[in-house]
């Protein structure tokens, strides 16, 4: 590998990481703004034009908060767990293709950090890792509320991971590959058309995987105060918070790649199409939060195992039969 190639790879990694963090910061702004307008309020208004500098102000505030380690906590795990969550969420973005390629001084630069042939599997593996972060955070905090949140999170995320994995099998069968670029290339017709049920299950599970309403039980503030991160302060808390949004962005990007044709679209450049699709998904996340109450724990488990899981299985069978009949 030439020095230039290494330089390009490094630059891509840094740019993508910085962009992801910016997107995370501004999705908090988006969430507060959209939620505000849906709830007859204004959302942030004071810091900057339309509150646009609010995420930066929040970041500075969180940096200067006292960093507390609660007494009786398992210090090693207590500090480790927010890192696990954040790293898992950020590293997943590496295999997502944002566009095709651009020409810079005769150099073809592909718009993705890495083109891994098992990219989809890689994302799933990393998102499973983040469960450890949340569970360990709940367990190591020496707090009953956090423990309950951590337990809920592990049960919920493991249950829903299964249905998520099954829901995309249909797409993989159509594409015949786990490489994200191949999947995008295969979508002359978006897979959402061929796999509507798969998409539906994927989105529902995505809500549960990201601990978003109506599946936000691990951090149900009306029951568990804020759940697994109740004992965290300052940037350690912020890491959980950022990881949640990063996770949402990754899941939205995954949905766009797998079901919505990735970067492909007419007229506009690929990266614009990709961002549009990701933010449409993000808006959907927020919209649902403004609309629905939360499931109860037993209902959540029942829904995952007795509804989503069998439907996802059935979807695979139906897809298989369809592919045999219509080729």
């Amino acid at each position: 590998m030439s020095l230039l190639a290494i330089g390009i790879a490094l630059a891509k990694a840094v740019i993508v990481f910085v962009c992801l963090l910016l997107c995370v910061a501004y999705s908090t702004w988006l969430e507060r703004k959209v939620l505000g307008h849906m709830q007859v309020r204004c959302g942030p208004l004071r810091v900057g034009w339309y509150g646009l500098l609010q995420p930066i102000a929040d970041g500075i505030k969180l940096f200067f908060k006292e960093d507390i380690v609660v007494s009786g906590a398992n210090k090693f795990l207590y500090i480790l767990s927010p890192m696990i969550v954040m790293i898992a969420a950020c590293a997943s973005i590496a295999v997502v293709p944002f566009g095709d390629y651009i020409d810079v001084f005769g150099q073809k630069i592909y718009l993705r950090v890495a083109d891994v042939d098992i990219g989809v599997l890689y994302i799933f593996a990393l998102s499973s890792l983040s469960v450890y972060g949340i569970t360990l955070a709940g367990w190591s905090s020496n707090s009953k509320y956090a423990l309950l949140g951590g337990l809920r999170a592990s049960a919920q995320m493991i249950s829903y991971e299964l249905a998520t994995g099954l829901s995309i099998i249909g797409v993989l069968m159509h594409a015949g590959s786990l490489r994200p670029t191949d999947i995008v290339a295969g979508q002359d017709i978006w897979y959402i058309v061929k796999q509507p049920i798969g998409f539906l299950i994927f989105v529902i599970c995505a809500f549960a995987e990201c601990n978003r309403s109506p599946f936000d039980l691990p951090e149900a503030e009306n029951e568990l105060v804020p759940g697994f991160h109740v004992e965290y302060s300052s940037m350690k808390f912020a890491l959980f918070f950022m990881a949640e949004y990063a996770h949402m962005i990754v899941v939205s990007a995954l949905a766009a790649t797998l079901f919505l044709g990735g970067w492909r679209g007419p007229v506009l450049p690929g990266i614009v199409w990709f961002m549009l699709k990701v933010f449409a998904m993000m808006f959907f996340f927020i919209w649902i939060r403004a609309t629905y109450p939360r499931f109860r724990y037993d209902q959540l488990m029942k829904f995952g195992w007795k509804v989503l899981f069998p439907v996802a299985l059935l979807n695979i069978v139906v897809t298989g039969i369809g592919m045999v009949i219509w080729g």
């Binding site: 939620l35 709830q39 309403s213 936000d216 403004a290 609309t291 629905y292 109450p293 939360r294």
Partner: peptide
Amino acid sequence: IGAMSPLLY
């Protein structure tokens, strides 16, 4: 029970 908006309405 987690429904945020009705309160504000």
